[in-house]
Amino acid sequence: MTTKAEVLEVSVWRGSADGGALETFEVPARESQTVLDVVSWIQQFADPTLTYRYACRVGMCGSCAMMVNGTPRWTCRTHVQKVAEGNSLRIEPLRNLPVIKDLAADMDPFFDKWVEAEAVHHPTGTRHDPIAHVDADSGARQAADAGIECINCAVCYAACDTVAGNADYLGPAALQRAWTLLNDTRDGGGASILDAVSGGGGCHNCHSMGSCTQYCPNELDPMSAIAGLKRETVRRVFRRRRDA
């Protein structure tokens, strides 16, 4: 069954790191069609050279995020009917990241910043130790739980105006993961995490504009996680004073 507008006018960004332009395709409109369906239709039936990225198609893998009519979205879970302006769609690669080709953004800077933020596990035990007890009701665990469902889709990174203006800024996703690890009793990297997020590109650059929280497709709240990091870095200074 088709919708009222039988055909979608879809502008797709084509190009590479050297530059590019929008190219328009006419795509048959269908009921319950997702933006990823539209991109796939173009690649399968109109232009097989179109490059884009996806894997799971069900909102778990975080690989299909693109700009849709100027807004960063997970395309596999975004219905065309909810975001089309009239019968037109504009699909571009994620903002704030270099482009590899067409709709595939280069995710390297995004993931490099996760490592830079010490958003990596710092083990405290070995396989020979008993399984660590995690108190699900503790405040720290609940703070960690609030952020661990991140699928690394980089929608928040593309939405963030601070990233747009400040290339060194680590960004919401990396900082949120640093925050969840800081609150994880099994992670032994607390001090190095706080050091890593206190540098020139760290959490203190956040202006709390909230685009990350606004656009996160999993409805996470990186802005509050970053606020938590700011609070903990300040607390650490006063704790040091008291201990001295």
């Binding site: 400040n166 060194d168 800024y169 206190s198 540098g199 020139g200 590109g201 760290g202 203190h204 650059n205 700011k230 870095t233 300040v234 200074v237």
Partner: peptide, 12 residues
């Protein structure tokens, strides 16, 4: 660009 030291100086 805005490290912890500058952040604290501005807040204080």
């Amino acid at each position: 660009m805005l490290d912890f030291r500058l952040y604290m100086a501005q807040r204080l």
